[in-house]
Computed example of a mutant assay.
Amino acid sequence: MISLNDIEKACGRIEGQVKRTPVLSSQLLNKWLGHDVFFKAECLQKIGAFKARGGCNTISWLIETGQKPKRIVANSSGNHAQAIAWAANRYHIPATIYMPDYSSKVKIEATKSYGAEVVLCETRDLADAKVKKASEEEGTYWIPPFNHEQVIAGQGTAMYEALQDVPKIDAVFAPCGGGGLVSGTLVATKGMSPKSKVFGVEPLNANDAAESLRKNSIQRLASKPKTLADGVMTMAVGDITFEHLKHLDGMYEITEDRIVYWTQWLTHLLKLHLEPTSAMTMEGVFQWLKTQKSKKRIMMVLTGGNIDNATQKAIWEDDFLIETPRL
């Protein structure tokens, strides 16, 4: 498992290369809920997502340790693809990204625009197989989307910053796909604020992490999950991230209607462009706050803001703003 020291080193590597994103809140939402909820706005990060942190830190670490590769390969359905393409371009290293062909068109085109070669595959499993084979070529380094110590350390810098800016937090929430962000969030939080609770949040339709924790072994989804939260459509968590996930205080599983509900409401209240994966986390916060008897201070990560037209239409097909969010 990584340590707080790993995250602190990552902060030093990426300083000046990624943004120190703001922590925001909504007075109206806090009034309605009776609690203080803070949002680390990684949707305003480079490439529009927190993934820039892990990608930048990993490549910087490779160079720092004398391992600069001739080529970088990665597998991703979206934001990690953009992050590696962007970070590799900064360090003048050619990159090839293997993506399932159902990935967001916006994310596919953005990855290409950062200079990477994009190879589209029929399934996520095929993309994973192709990147593994490509990584065996001499001079090639594979940066996976979550199951890598330096990727996790880089992602953890988001919460490290957030807790510096807003101390005395009772609970922290982050979305869980492969587990890289929530693992880094866990290490940063427990290292800086040991009494704070840390929760993961994932779609009920893609709940491999929750199933893995229940069965105490990594469980793999049988097929591509049907969820609007495309940022957490991984088929299974990694062996490295799973060891971190075991130390979480809980994992919330969110239905699709609640993912849409909070995407609409947080977009409206915060005036930000938010992916459903980001907003999904708020339902975990909402469910936890229902069980609390005293006023709490919550921090959650808004992971990204890259949405294609089809997803936008699905989000706004029905009007959920007629139902005010109250506990």
Rank of each mutant, 00 (worst) to 15 (best):
residue 122 E to C: 02
residue 44 L to H: 00
residue 232 V to I: 12
residue 60 S to C: 13
residue 34 G to C: 09
residue 318 D to N: 12
residue 129 A to E: 13
residue 68 K to P: 03
residue 170 D to E: 06
residue 206 A to N: 07
residue 214 R to F: 06
residue 172 V to W: 07
residue 32 W to D: 06
residue 207 N to L: 01
residue 53 R to C: 03
residue 105 K to W: 02
residue 131 V to T: 11
residue 194 P to L: 12
residue 223 S to A: 10
residue 268 H to C: 10
residue 231 G to V: 02
residue 173 F to M: 09
residue 160 Y to P: 05
residue 76 S to F: 07
residue 88 A to N: 14
residue 63 I to E: 14
residue 274 L to M: 12
residue 234 T to W: 00
residue 309 N to D: 12
residue 20 R to V: 05
residue 193 S to E: 13
residue 105 K to V: 14
residue 102 Y to C: 08
residue 8 E to F: 07
residue 297 R to N: 13
residue 303 T to E: 03
residue 92 H to N: 14
residue 132 K to H: 11
residue 22 P to T: 05
residue 175 P to A: 15
residue 193 S to D: 13
residue 4 L to Q: 01
residue 15 E to C: 06
residue 207 N to F: 00
residue 109 E to H: 10
residue 216 N to W: 08
residue 174 A to R: 01
residue 161 E to D: 10
residue 19 K to W: 04
residue 168 K to Y: 08
residue 151 V to R: 02
residue 134 A to G: 03
residue 298 I to E: 08
residue 96 T to C: 14
residue 207 N to G: 15
residue 138 E to V: 14
residue 316 W to E: 09
residue 123 T to H: 04
residue 245 L to Y: 12
residue 91 Y to G: 05
residue 264 Q to L: 09
residue 258 R to A: 01
residue 31 K to H: 15
residue 227 T to R: 04
residue 169 I to W: 03
residue 261 Y to V: 03
residue 295 K to H: 15
residue 291 T to G: 07
residue 307 I to T: 14
residue 216 N to R: 14
residue 152 I to K: 02
residue 19 K to V: 01
residue 201 V to N: 06
residue 178 G to R: 01
residue 60 S to N: 10
residue 162 A to E: 03
residue 16 G to D: 03
residue 161 E to I: 01
residue 229 A to D: 00
residue 142 W to P: 00
residue 304 G to H: 00
residue 28 L to D: 14
residue 34 G to P: 07
residue 281 T to W: 04
residue 93 I to W: 09
residue 256 E to L: 06
residue 58 T to K: 13
residue 309 N to L: 15
residue 64 E to H: 13
residue 52 A to W: 00
residue 172 V to K: 06
residue 113 S to C: 11
residue 110 A to H: 00
residue 189 T to M: 13
residue 181 L to V: 07
residue 249 D to A: 09
residue 94 P to S: 10
residue 52 A to G: 03
residue 176 C to A: 15
residue 211 E to Y: 05
residue 297 R to L: 12
residue 296 K to G: 04
residue 94 P to I: 09
residue 11 C to S: 15
residue 50 F to R: 00
residue 315 I to G: 01
residue 121 C to H: 07
residue 152 I to S: 02
residue 56 C to Q: 08
residue 76 S to M: 07
residue 236 A to G: 07
residue 268 H to Y: 13
residue 129 A to W: 03
residue 52 A to P: 01
residue 226 K to D: 13
residue 288 W to Y: 14
residue 106 V to I: 09
residue 189 T to Y: 10
residue 278 S to A: 14
residue 255 T to I: 02
residue 63 I to G: 06
residue 203 P to Q: 04
residue 236 A to V: 06
residue 40 K to E: 11
residue 295 K to S: 11
residue 270 L to V: 04
residue 234 T to H: 02
residue 239 D to T: 12
residue 105 K to T: 13
residue 220 R to W: 11
